[in-house]
């Protein structure tokens, strides 16, 4: 953390002005909405330009009885300007799904395109776009929890300041704009020092608290991009949990658009 990244001063001014205004007038809702949106925009802006990456990850799935099961995978990702990112996930463990691969094109304003490659049948299967709220590999992560963060996917409301994981955070309520999201809302804790997400609470469609995701072991890449190496998702309704552990992340490994199509999905190893 030699090079601290400071929030742009105009934003602080705007936020301060917003706070002052909201205290003084009846426009509380508009101001807190604006503040929430500005924080989301700055969060996205700070993550711009990472290009492409390759990571090796492990998921540890636990049920309420404490039994656990391990998933291992490699994820290739490509940043797409003006739209959601592209991702190719190759599964290594458990061994019976070894060689299966998942291709995802995230989109901002329309459903994601998703394909699954089944090596035993040598078949690429398109996945119906509605399944974003379904579990990823039997874990507590839904597909939509792993999609790239895009500002336009939510409407925002700033709630309060609160300290989490030793970091002073903005607490933001985000309401998904997609009617097929599995959530009615998310509450996010975003730290004020680096705009990193520290915690997210997910509320189900009946407004009940469903899951909590906590972020830990943040590491700084290319002097600019923060990545959490441990993400823990706990389901409060079932007692199940999943740790997503990034063992290794490499940026700018030279991936391009041609590495993210149905042919590359077929030969993914």
């Amino acid at each position: 953390m030699l090079k601290q990244y400071k929030p742009t001063s105009w934003l602080s001014l705007l936020l301060a002005a917003g706070l002052a205004l909201s205290a003084a007038s009846g426009q509380v809702n508009a101001e807190t909405t604006n503040k929430g949106l500005e924080i989301a925009k700055e969060r996205k802006a700070r993550d711009k330009g990472w290009g492409d990456s390759e990571s090796t990850s492990q998921m540890i799935l636990r049920n309420a009885q404490g039994d656990q099961s391990i998933r291992e995978m490699r994820i290739q990702a490509l940043e797409v300007q003006g739209d959601g990112d592209k991702g190719l996930t190759i599964f290594d463990e458990p061994r019976d799904v070894k060689g299966s691969a998942f291709l995802n094109f995230s989109h901002i304003n329309e459903p994601d395109d998703q394909w699954l490659y089944l090596p035993a049948l040598k078949r690429v299967k398109r996945i119906a776009s509605r399944n974003k709220s379904g579990p990823f590999m039997g874990s507590e992560f839904a597909y939509e929890d792993l999609a790239s963060f895009e500002v336009e996917k939510y409407t925002y409301q700033y709630l309060r300041d609160e300290t989490v994981n030793g970091e002073l955070c903005w607490v933001i309520e985000s309401i998904p704009t997609d009617k097929y999201s599995g959530y009615s809302k998310q509450i996010s804790w975003i730290d004020q020092s680096e705009y990193r997400v520290q915690k997210i609470e997910f509320y189900d469609r009946k407004q009940a608290l469903l899951k909590t995701l906590t972020f830990a072991d943040y590491k700084l890449y290319l002097n600019k991009y923060w990545r959490a190496h441990t993400m823990t998702m706990t389901n409060h309704q079932t007692g199940k949990s999943t740790d997503m552990i990034a063992k290794e992340i490499n940026f700018k490994v030279g991936l391009s658009d041609t590495d993210f199509n149905q042919n590359s999905l077929r030969r993914a190893r």
Partner: peptide, 14 residues
């Protein structure tokens, strides 16, 4: 057609 109902009865079953 193939029609998928995700998370039936608030479970994780599809």
């Amino acid at each position: 057609f193939e029609y998928t109902m995700v998370g039936i009865n608030d479970s994780s079953t599809d």
